[in-house]
């Protein structure tokens, strides 16, 4: 972790509450994320971790609370707005575009930066053509970075799970995000795949300075790679701090870490 310097608060969540009918998914949760840090959200199943990410990038709209992103106060996010402001995301159950090749999947991550109009695209002239080439260049850099050159023309539906996860990450990186939300990037992977993924996450954080918010169940991974950890349980925040603090927090131990630590 050489050139990395933790900056100011980039994302601040204040008293977020979200409910679906009678189910209170999130209750009065506040925490912040600093620029360039790796921030983990942990908690047992159903604790509200994924809902939290969905609130941050605007898929869900909280009933109460406030989201402050880069100094701008807002009640909730809208998916398009979140994407435009540089929040990217990967999914717990891979949400790739199954009918498209790896390359096209990653190219979709560039859609917000492509401005040519429909007619130019239909005629493949001027800006449309130029844009395709420029963005292809950028996408190829990401493909190199994630070491998936050999599968760039393969339809994603044919890829094994571990590689699909990597393509999912590639698509998010293609947005050149400031904040990257990772929803269980290592779920269902074997040890080698997990190691690769950890390396990529740390490299993204280190080389691009991307702020990372991740949900993960593998405690070893979380404690190793994150700078700070927030712990949720039944929609409430029960712990927040650097890994060692969280590990020592008796409430966290009883709710989650249990006997394994």
């Amino acid at each position: 972790m050489s050139g990395r310097k933790i900056g100011d608060v980039i994302l601040d969540l204040n008293n977020i509450s979200l409910s679906f009918g009678g189910v209170k998914a999130l209750q009065n949760i506040s925490f912040n994320v600093m620029e360039h840090e790796v921030r983990a959200i942990i908690g047992p199943n159903g604790a509200g971790k994924s809902s939290m990410l969905n609130v941050i990038n605007g898929v869900y709209h909280p009933q109460e609370g406030e989201i402050i992103f880069r100094g701008e106060h807002r009640r909730d996010m809208d998916t398009h707005q979140a994407a435009e402001q540089g929040i990217a995301r990967t999914f717990q159950n891979i949400a790739l575009f199954k009918g498209m090749s790896v390359l096209d999947n990653i190219m979709t991550g560039r859609n917000l930066r492509m401005k040519s109009n429909l007619f130019m695209q239909a005629l493949w002239i001027g800006p449309a053509r130029r844009e395709e080439l420029e963005h292809r260049q950028k996408v190829e850099e990401i493909i190199d970075f994630l070491e998936i050159q050999h599968i760039r023309k393969t339809p994603v539906g044919r890829l094994p799970y571990g590689l699909q996860k990597r393509v999912d990450l590639a698509r998010a990186l293609a947005m050149e995000p400031e904040v990257l939300l990772l929803d269980e990037p290592m779920a269902g992977m074997n040890v080698e795949e997990k190691q690769d993924m950890c390396r990529f996450i740390l490299d993204v954080n280190d080389q691009f300075g991307t702020t990372i918010v991740l949900i993960e169940h593998d405690m070893g991974v979380v404690m190793d790679i994150s700078d700070r950890v927030v712990v949720l349980d039944y929609g409430k925040k029960i712990g927040d701090g650097v890994p060692d603090e969280v590990r020592a927090n008796p409430e966290v131990i009883s709710a989650y870490l249990g006997a394994s630590h």
Partner: peptide
């Protein structure tokens, strides 16, 4: 095609 294959993911990347 992104909308066809997975509309939530498409919205999240800004489509």
């Amino acid at each position: 095609m992104a909308i066809r294959d997975m509309d939530v993911a498409a919205a999240v990347i800004g489509i």
